[in-house]
Simulated scan of single mutants.
Amino acid sequence: MNKEIMHSLLHKVIKVDRGGPESRIGFLLAVGNDYFTLLTESDGVIYYSTQHVKSITIDAKDGLKFELEVPENFEYITGADFFSILNNLKYYWIKVNRGGPEMLEGVLDEVGEDYVIIISNLEIIRLSKFHIRSLSYGAKVEKVKEEEKESDSSAKKKEYDSES
């Protein structure tokens, strides 16, 4: 996927791929040299390697369903390129290739030139970096429940009424 195209979609809700196990809808947080960062409702922050993305969709009419409010101070791992992201996630519990038969999760132990080592249960898995389509490490934004929104607005109204 072209970096300039991805930059034009920054801070918009997009759908990655048309379907299948890697397809997700989310808020485009950042664009790196060879990856982009997507915040999703259910999976949190996901890093996609652009070389494996088949399509990006934006819905100009109705919008894609995304009901999270992204806090201004939301923090997540960043880096200039996908290799940097991998290095910055060393010793984190990660999920790789989030869907399908190639999904695996474990602790990212080592990042080499062409491979990563992931410790999963009692297995030491060497995975080619080229075959990493996406990865996540659990950073999430908690969804505000409707009841909490209503109680917050009621509390603000009461506060305003008492000040008047």
Score class of each variant (00 low, 15 high):
K90Q: 15
D114R: 03
I119E: 14
E123N: 13
I117L: 14
L104F: 02
M103E: 15
E123S: 14
E113P: 02
G99R: 07
N88Q: 11
V96G: 01
W93N: 10
P101Y: 04
Y91N: 15
I85Q: 10
N121F: 10
L127F: 08
Y92G: 03
I124N: 06
K95C: 01
M103D: 02
E105P: 00
G100Y: 11
E113G: 02
E110W: 06
S120H: 12
V107G: 00
Y115F: 14
L127Y: 08
R126I: 12
L108E: 06
L108Q: 05
F82Q: 02
G112W: 05
I124V: 14
Y115W: 11
Y91S: 15
N87K: 13
V96N: 01
L104I: 00
K90P: 06
N97L: 02
Y91H: 14
I118F: 13
F82Y: 09
G100L: 07
G112L: 12
R126W: 13
G100Q: 08
I125P: 05
I85N: 06
V116E: 06
S120W: 09
G112Q: 08
V107D: 01
F83R: 08
G112T: 04
E123K: 13
N121G: 02
F83N: 14
V111R: 09
S84C: 09
L104Y: 00
G100D: 09
I125Q: 04
Y91P: 01
E110Q: 14
I85K: 05
E113A: 13
E102K: 15
G100K: 06
V116S: 07
Y91G: 04
I124Q: 07
L89C: 14
W93I: 05
D109K: 14
R98H: 11
V107P: 00
E113S: 12
E123D: 15
I125Y: 09
G112Y: 09
